[in-house]
Nucleic acid binder design. Structure first.
Length: 162
DNA sequence: AACATTTGACCTAT
DNA sequence: ATAGGTCAAATGTT
């Protein structure tokens, strides 16, 4: 049909386990998970959301680490960023990205927050003061900062004892 | 039949 | 309370 773009292949098999419509986006967001290692070894998840601005652009958010071993072949395919990284096919360069959520990143040292430029979406009674932090290059930054394993409980644990 | 996807309900975090 | 995220049953496909 007219559908040209489908979720790009990353080299891993993903099983779709949910889909939800996101406020502020015209298209629903798909939730994927590693098709192997039942619900135990592979905490790797993947989020796919197409931008309402560019329906041809898919915002893929990877999170978690891959514990699956891909046979015994050389990694010809560049493995996606381990932690969370956003990969898009093309950047509009007109407006920043909708918004990123810190989610359940408890091990993150520096928090990476983004804000939507869509003016004011919220406003249902209470409007909590959000800490708007502009990030220059989250993708590279995160990759560099997170090149270590999360299992390393070295300094991050000291942030909050309780 | 087995597996993956679909869809609504349920749960959690904000 | 709301938006977002996950689960689970049903359905479809291989």
């Amino acid at each position: 049909m007219g559908n040209t773009e489908v979720p790009p292949e990353d080299g891993y098999s993903w099983r779709k386990y949910g889909q939800k419509e996101i406020l502020g986006s015209k298209f629903p967001r798909g939730y994927y998970r590693c098709t192997h290692q039942k619900l135990n070894n592979c905490p790797a998840k993947k989020q796919v959301q197409r931008l309402d601005n560019d329906p041809y652009t898919f915002e893929v958010t990877y999170r978690g680490d891959h514990t699956c071993m891909m046979s015994s072949s050389a990694p010809s395919l560049p493995p996606p960023p381990p932690s969370e990284a956003m990969s898009t096919c093309s950047l509009p360069a007109s407006q920043p990205l909708p918004h990123l959520l810190p989610m359940d990143i408890k091990e993150s040292v520096g928090d990476l927050y983004n804000v939507t430029p869509h003016g004011n979406v919220s406003g249902a009674g209470s409007s909590p003061p959000n800490n708007y932090v502009d990030y220059p290059i989250v993708t590279d930054l995160v990759d560099t900062l997170f090149n270590s394993d999360i299992n390393n409980n070295n300094s991050i644990n000291f942030m909050f004892s309780s």
